[in-house]
Design a protein around this nucleic acid. Structure first.
Lengths: 331, 331
DNA sequence: AATCAAAATGTAATCGATTACATTTTGATT
DNA sequence: AATCAAAATGTAATCGATTACATTTTGATT
């Protein structure tokens, strides 16, 4: 079933059929209706490869994230797919594992696919050194990680603010020796660390480098770091982690040593996950608007596809402090 | 940069370039090397739309699941993407939300994309009434849900066995009044229920229909059902749930009423998730080999793509009972 | 009715690969 | 050296849509 069949059945040329089906102007209503009816009747569906080849733009968008197994990206991906589907586009999923080479490979793949656009959570390396020409190579929305001095659409959260807010919450409950675990390779982690440090300084505290820990954002690393902290001669009064995976490792280390939370040590983290509400005490967290990030990025991408000339914009979404019992708050 | 450019630069025809690049036989090594070198030098990458259009097969595979936000599917998707990438294919992600209409729409989309193959977690409705012609429409691997009497590749787990094993574990710890919560619309849930019932019967117990609960596999449903059970005049001694979402709801209901686990009520469930190990007592679970399911399905799909004539097979992977403290076991 | 710009429609080229078929080359055998 | 099947390579058609350009139709204006 191809456009030529429709054309013959409707008694018009393939060009007219194409115009009708792609919603172009300049077709008489009678012709339009006839073609539509025939297409419907013959159950026509377009061949996407042919369309893509000729028009030099496919109806796929690329979604490049670190790892779909991370609930943050899973939720975001779901939002992107919902938006894509509403626009009759499909989503090609790519996992970089924070590996710049895989990222490069996928970006090239998107070129070969003539992807209509890309939603990209860049690796730390790329985010720090983002070429303008990549941003200009086609419709693209950068998510999660800020890229500086580059004109590109992006959706991020207020990491600095959130880091500050979460730290201030701990300070407000009287904790002074607060350890912070941050993802070393991510721009996001660094911004959160800045917020953390700003809050401590604003409270008139000196920064203790022993308590500012930068590690790969992995569960084992979080576990190892917190195990070390707890065995130190002067352990911290509170621990803050900048990502869900670090939190899982960190909290397991606390559990392993059977240290009472919040009595002996307070705990707070970025990223909501099922366990933070299931355990007792429930964990105080900064919740990121994961679905909204994906949704916003998807919407921005389609606006960009429709209008490549529109000015680029950076959207900063707010995250939310959810106070529970792990820092000693009563609620 | 297209094949014609390579052909001119290497002094051969486009046909020869195509043969070299697609690894066909019947090219002299000298010519092959020359073409390869030129392609490398010009940094050639193939246009996938053109390839797909002519060869009537794209280098994308479709992955159709209920919801990528479900960790089971996220992990599985990751495996599929890893395998696809190793084979130089890309993955198109589709979420059906268990909605047969969305599923149909995506299956049609895969046709229009000329997808090289499909990995499909069918909705309950489709699984119960799977047309042979769909199975024959192209390379396809069905996952998670068994489809009966149809010749199609599939990867499932031993749901009946697992249901029986988990129930037997509860029986072995002396529980007799055991409630079971099962997903009503899934083949999977029904098989697990059968295992549950078989174990009870084998122990010489009568089935109490009040304690066999079939509901939509959603957190709220699990919460409501367990709340009701706990308020009954004769509450169960143990609760078993057949999916991660039901478990979360069910366990929240137990928490809400502050009932001691396992002293007042024992608890066990299908599906490992972070909270089942983070809470105290940790939860006894049946862990599904999620990554292995995706990996196996991916490998089977590529074998099928390479050899459409190979006999179909059903692979049953084993799930694993992980004993923790929520049923009173000491370990 | 003639005129003519705008609207509608058609013809044929095109996107970049693969592949059917044709032709040339190779190399073993006589 | 002649023969000839097999191997290597080339030519040109093809996949199914979009689109540049050409042509025809429409309908307002004179």
């Amino acid at each position: 079933m191809k456009i030529k069949d429709i054309a013959e059945a409707a008694g018009v040329s393939t060009a007219t059929v194409s115009r009708v089906l792609s919603g172009k102007q300049n077709v008489r209503p009678a012709v339009r209706d006839k073609v539509m009816a025939v297409a419907q009747e013959l159950n026509y569906t377009p061949n996407r490869a042919a369309r893509s080849l000729r028009s030099r733009r496919s109806s796929s968008i690329g979604l490049i994230v670190a790892d779909i197994q991370n609930p943050f990206f899973a939720s975001l991906s779901r939002a992107v797919e919902d938006i894509a589907q509403a626009n009759d586009y499909s989503v090609i999923l790519c996992n970089t594992d924070e590996n710049p080479e895989k990222e490069k490979m996928y970006l090239e793949l998107m070129q070969n696919e003539n992807a209509a656009g890309i939603i990209l959570a860049p690796t730390g390396e790329l985010a720090r050194n983002f070429p303008q020409e990549l941003a200009d190579s086609g419709p693209m929305v950068v998510i999660d990680r800020k890229v500086n001095n580059i004109s590109v659409d992006s959706v991020v959260i207020d990491n600095f603010d959130a880091g500050q807010t979460l730290t201030r919450h701990l300070l407000d409950h009287g904790y002074r020796r607060i350890a912070g675990l941050f993802g070393a390779n991510s721009v996001t982690g660094q911004e959160r660390r800045s917020g953390f440090e700003a809050a401590l300084r604003a409270a008139g505290l000196d920064l203790d480098q022993e308590l500012i820990i930068e590690i790969a954002a992995k569960e084992v690393e979080g576990h190892a770091a917190v195990s070390r902290l707890l065995e130190a001669e002067n352990p911290p009064e509170a621990i803050l982690t900048s990502s869900g995976l670090l939190a899982t490792g960190a909290f397991r280390a606390i559990r392993d040593k059977e240290i009472a939370v919040p009595q002996k040590i307070a705990f707070a983290t970025f990223d909501e996950s099922p366990w933070t509400t299931m355990i007792r005490p429930a964990i105080t967290v900064i919740e990121q608007p994961t679905y909204a990030i994906g949704q916003t990025a998807g919407e921005m991408l389609f606006k960009r596809i429709k209008d490549p000339e529109r000015p680029t914009r950076q959207v900063v979404l707010s995250s939310k402090l959810i106070v529970r019992q792990s820092c000693g708050a009563h609620s």
